[in-house]
């Protein structure tokens, strides 16, 4: 392979990512410390108002008052993302494990069936839950059938948001978990039974530890996009309870405070980068331990 091609082959990819991603992220950082423009947008400068705004509001006499409303939004976002990750994890492990026990042909078909809904447009998937959970929707009919009270459906609740977010993200969990449990050596599970371990012991001492890389990998793949979710909070959560994604979105739409939106985006980015760094460190330690 010629020297020229080595350079020109990689050049477009680098140029694209530097121009549309790396430089823009630095611009966001710069905007987050700029001044809010008089008519929306921003004016270049150095001003930490946007970050101060996350923690404090200005009182009647211009004094700073601690106001946790944005911290609550950040905390809520972390809580939802953690919840979505845990639910996906608990559902994915038995499912992935069950698939790994099937015949080779069945495995292919089942993995295909798991992936398939993920290809359907995100907006359509969220919309479908809107119909199911809405007033007189399927969920309410089942609820009434089992003796529940006829109400206004289940939309705009935390449950609706969780169901929608788990539904959107779970294939990202199932695939790495499946890849991990599929490689499990059945002899090890048999050995644990030969040693009079119960099924529960085999799960706790053999299956979970050995598939940990897949469980952790899947958790990150679900956690990161959940932090930035926009559609589910807007449509299933009704936009009443803001999340970081919707909060950022609003700053560039209706209320137009670009520096503040950029500051929240930087907070979100920082959280994600921290998660990725912690994970990279853990993976490196594990590599060292097994080497």
């Amino acid at each position: 392979m010629s020297k020229a091609f080595r350079f020109w082959g990689l050049f477009p990819a680098w140029a694209l990512m530097v121009l549309t991603l790396i430089i823009p992220v630095f611009i966001v950082a710069a905007v987050s410390v700029s001044e809010r423009g008089a008519y929306g947008g921003f004016d270049w400068g150095f001003d930490l108002t946007a970050y101060r705004q996350i923690l404090f509001t200005l009182g009647w006499t211009d004094e700073l008052e601690f106001d946790p409303k944005y911290l609550i939004i950040i905390g809520r976002t972390l809580a939802y993302a953690t919840g979505v990750t845990l639910i996906s994890l608990i559902l994915s492990l038995p499912l992935a494990y069950w698939i790994s026990l099937q015949s080779a042909r069945m495995k292919l078909i089942l993995v295909y069936l798991v992936t398939l809904p993920f290809w359907v447009s995100m907006i359509v998937r969220v919309y479908s839950w809107l119909i199911i959970l809405g007033n007189d929707g399927l969920a309410e009919r089942i609820y009434v059938f089992f003796g529940g009270a006829d109400g206004q459906g289940f939309l705009f609740t935390w449950g609706a948001m969780l169901v929608g977010m788990v539904y959107s993200h779970i294939p990202l969990m199932i695939l790495p978990v499946y890849a991990a449990v599929e490689k499990l050596d059945p002899a090890l599970i048999e050995a644990s039974h030969d040693l009079y371990g119960s099924r529960w012991t085999a799960l706790r001492r053999v299956i979970i530890p050995l598939s940990a890389p897949g469980l952790i990998g899947g958790s990150i793949l679900v956690f990161v996009p959940s932090l930035g979710a926009v559609l589910e909070p807007m449509l299933l959560g009704g936009g009443r309870q803001l999340m970081m994604g919707t909060l950022i979105q609003n700053q560039f739409g209706g209320s137009r405070d670009w520096p503040f939106g950029a500051a929240i985006a930087m907070v979100l980015l920082t959280i994600v980068v921290l998660v990725l760094i912690v994970n990279a460190r853990r993976a490196a330690r594990q590599m060292e331990a097994s080497a």
Binding site: L21, P24, V28, V31, G228, I248, A262, A265, L268
Partner: peptide, 12 residues
């Protein structure tokens, strides 16, 4: 990276 951050970045 979360898409919303990238979206804000290209918008600006």
């Amino acid at each position: 990276l979360p898409e919303i951050v990238l979206a804000v970045a290209v918008l600006i």
